[in-house]
């Protein structure tokens, strides 16, 4: 078995009724244990690409493989080792973090004892122990983000997809989330990450893919890309250089 966590080959996707591809002929690879960033302006196709990689949208043209398994043929097996933290909160606001994790843990295929153990440790690590039994709807935005993250990682996925996991949170929460993601990565979890916080991305990601209008604009180690394009001021300068400064939405 090779060391690829994910490989995307000639992937194209178009929503019904649209004239143009939302994702057009994309190919890239992510290695096991890597922290990979996916960037692009609004409407670039990042969330659609993420949806295709986690199986929320059906792949009709091209191929996606996760740990050597084809997403079209082995989707049931793939579901056991991937985790997804969507941009929008995806939990039951009426339930407490413990009750949410109890349900999503069971659906992730864990047994009751494991769910209980992992819930306790996750809430501890993410600073939610004190509010473990309060309804999530009473939480601040940052606390909700942490609950959203906890649900995505309770089954300890081998590949974790994160769609803007720190949007709308304060500096403290952002740092806490990034630090926790680094811990997860150190334990062997491959991270596939999108964000608009480019400084945060510089800190977290080893390699990146920059996409615009559904096409690949750049794809390499961050340091090599910066050097190649002469972007001394970092990812933000590179981003503007490659995607332009016009409004996108």
């Amino acid at each position: 078995m090779n060391n690829l966590a994910l490989s995307v080959n000639n992937l194209s996707f178009r929503y019904p009724g649209q004239a143009k591809d939302c994702v057009h002929d994309l190919s890239f690879e992510i290695f096991i244990g890597e922290r990979f960033g996916l960037f692009g302006p609004n409407g670039a196709g990042k969330t659609t690409l993420m949806s295709l990689m986690v199986g929320l949208q059906k792949v009709k043209q091209g191929h996606i493989q996760l740990l050597g398994k084809d997403i079209r043929k082995d989707s049931a097996a793939i579901k056991h080792f991937i985790g997804y933290v969507p941009q929008d909160f995806a939990f039951y606001p009426e339930l407490s973090p413990v009750e949410n994790l109890d349900f999503f843990g069971a659906w992730s295929g864990l047994d009751k004892r494991t769910v209980k153990e992992r819930t306790t440790s996750l809430l501890e690590v993410l600073g939610l122990s004190d509010v473990a039994h309060k309804p999530v709807k009473q939480f601040s935005g940052g606390m909700k983000r942490r609950v959203n993250l906890a649900i995505g990682v309770i089954h300890e996925p081998k590949i974790l997809f994160l769609d803007e996991p720190t949007v709308g949170v304060d500096v403290q929460t952002r740092h806490a989330i990034i630090d926790y993601l680094k811990v997860l990565n150190a334990q062997g979890t491959t991270l596939v990450y999108t964000s608009h916080h480019l400084k945060e991305a510089e800190d977290l990601c080893e390699r990146i893919a920059l996409i615009d209008r559904g096409e690949m604009v750049a794809y390499d180690h961050l340091s090599q890309l910066l050097e190649r394009h002469g972007s001394k001021d970092g990812l933000e300068e590179l981003f503007l250089k490659l995607t332009g400064s016009a409004y996108r939405d």
């Binding site: 929320l56 056991h80 997804y84 039951y92 606001p93 999503f104 659906w107 649900i151 995505g152």
Partner: peptide
Amino acid sequence: KEKLSGSFVRLKILPTNFIV
């Protein structure tokens, strides 16, 4: 509520049949 809260989306990628 489940549709709007995104819970359905999360459930779809979990290894449990939605029939459950």
